[in-house]
Design a protein around this nucleic acid. Structure first.
Lengths: 160, 160
DNA sequence: TGTAGACATTTGTTGGAGCAAACATCCGCA
DNA sequence: TGCGGATGTTTGCTCCAACAAATGTCTACA
């Protein structure tokens, strides 16, 4: 009878509580190394991207951040020497942000604690089979919700 | 060999992509009614809490927002007439934020679209059995990550 | 009674993020 | 070659949230 007790609302709330709870743990770990969560996500995407293949706008698409957000983020990281801007040879408008050795070192500094946190607060809580199930559900949703998550790496698929 | 290709990292990234993707859809729906996501969460928690039973600090605990964050949020909502501050009879330090009729009306204005979005981008994508499985995995994690999520409504359960 | 410490909330400051406009460069076409 | 629109990035403005300090109130204890 109470319209605010819809099970869908409860499901969404549960999802939110869990994710923001874990994200909060992660944020603390990043902060210990002087990184914000945006910093970390940016760095790790650069570290995982093959070659020099990520432009500012690709990063923006991947991170769900506005283009200006990426500009400021790279500004901060560049100021700390964790990233450099490399001019694009074929398009003088474009820049390739590139992670430096110091950037990789900073990531390596956070990584052990971060992996431990993920295991402790997320993956380690579910039995392996259940975790697999959980992840495949996530993938299913991801493919609908974020068709462009691979921008820059692959071509973008339109929403059908 | 690449330490940045750990499966736990991938799992966490997938989780983040999915949640932030859905949260983004929700944010758009809230914005159409002139509410931020914080506004919406605050209002709905007030609407779902029985009696007058939520203090500012309870809200802070539930929403994972700082106490000052709650102060400002209630400030904004009060300015729009969606919430009132009610003095606590037994503790003159405390206030009970209370949703007004206008606040309920505003929620009712967003709710249909919001429920539709949840169904479209989340619950409706998984077959019922799989959704149940997914939600019970979430609950399992929630109980570890957020033992205090029910502050103010129930007594706090310790982590067992 | 009176004082110290804890607690609930608010206010001042700082930094981050989005939007929209500006700027530079690229591409297609005559 | 030269023009017009599209695209990549940066900058100005404004709002929002967290942190820390300040205020008022409560509780315990001598």
């Amino acid at each position: 009878m109470d319209p605010f007790d819809d099970p869908r609302l409860t499901a969404m709330g549960l999802f939110a509580e869990v994710y923001t709870g874990i994200a909060d743990k992660n944020r603390r770990a990043f902060a210990e190394a002087g990184l914000s969560d945006v910093d970390f996500e940016t760095l790790i995407r650069l570290a995982r991207s093959p070659g020099e293949g990520l432009r500012m706008s690709d990063l923006a698409a991947q991170t769900n951040l506005s283009t200006s957000g990426i500009t400021r983020a790279i500004d901060r990281l560049e100021r700390e020497g964790l990233v450099t801007r490399e001019a694009c040879a074929t398009d003088r408008r474009a820049f390739y942000p590139r992670i430096t050795e110091a950037g990789r070192a900073r990531l390596m500094q956070v990584l052990p604690r971060h992996l431990e946190d993920i295991e402790h607060w997320f993956t380690g809580l579910l039995p392996p089979a259940e975790l697999d199930h959980f992840l495949s559900s996530l993938r299913l949703i991801r493919d609908v919700v974020r068709p462009c998550a691979t921008a820059g790496a692959e071509e973008i698929e339109p929403v059908t």
